[in-house]
């Protein structure tokens, strides 16, 4: 029996929450599970194009520990989930409008499948398991 699709709403800009979302998304995706991630609010800032890893996150207590212990890079985990499994990432269209950003110009290359609205994402998520960070 196929696993339920996994839907993740990521709104936090804290390193540990973004990282946990990346761990769950990537491992689920490579375990033959369809995964979709909806990135909104403060989490959108994490994916701003051109930011160095130390500039991406806001708040949280684990950033220094992650760096000191060479924990896998958070955005690379998302990318590996996309490369090795069925993982799609959507950015909140409302946040893009507020910031006057575009997926192709302002966000990290290669990660996002496009912009989406919360209503459609929630509607799709009715058929799976929903997590929020």
């Amino acid at each position: 029996m196929a696993s339920q699709p996994l839907y993740i709403i990521l709104s936090s800009g804290e390193h540990e929450k973004v990282h946990l979302a990346a761990m769950i998304a990537s491992v689920a995706a490579v375990s033959d599970r369809k995964v979709e991630v909806f990135v909104t609010m403060n989490a959108v800032n994490v994916f701003e194009r051109g930011l160095a890893p130390e500039e991406r996150y806001h708040g949280g207590n684990y950033h220094d520990l992650f760096v000191a212990n060479k924990v896998p890079d958070t955005l690379e985990l998302f990318q590996m989930g996309k490369d090795l499994g069925e993982l799609k990432m959507w950015v909140c269209s409302m946040v893009l409008d507020l910031k006057h950003w575009e997926v192709e110009k302002n966000l990290t290359e290669g990660l996002f499948d496009g912009a989406a609205g919360l209503t459609v994402f929630l509607s799709d998520a009715e058929n799976g398991q929903l997590l929020s960070f």
Binding site: M23, V30, L77, M80, L84
Partner: peptide, 11 residues
């Protein structure tokens, strides 16, 4: 650290 080794294995 987790899930680094797993992801390397899968690749």
């Amino acid at each position: 650290f987790c899930p680094g080794p797993l992801m390397e294995l899968i690749a």
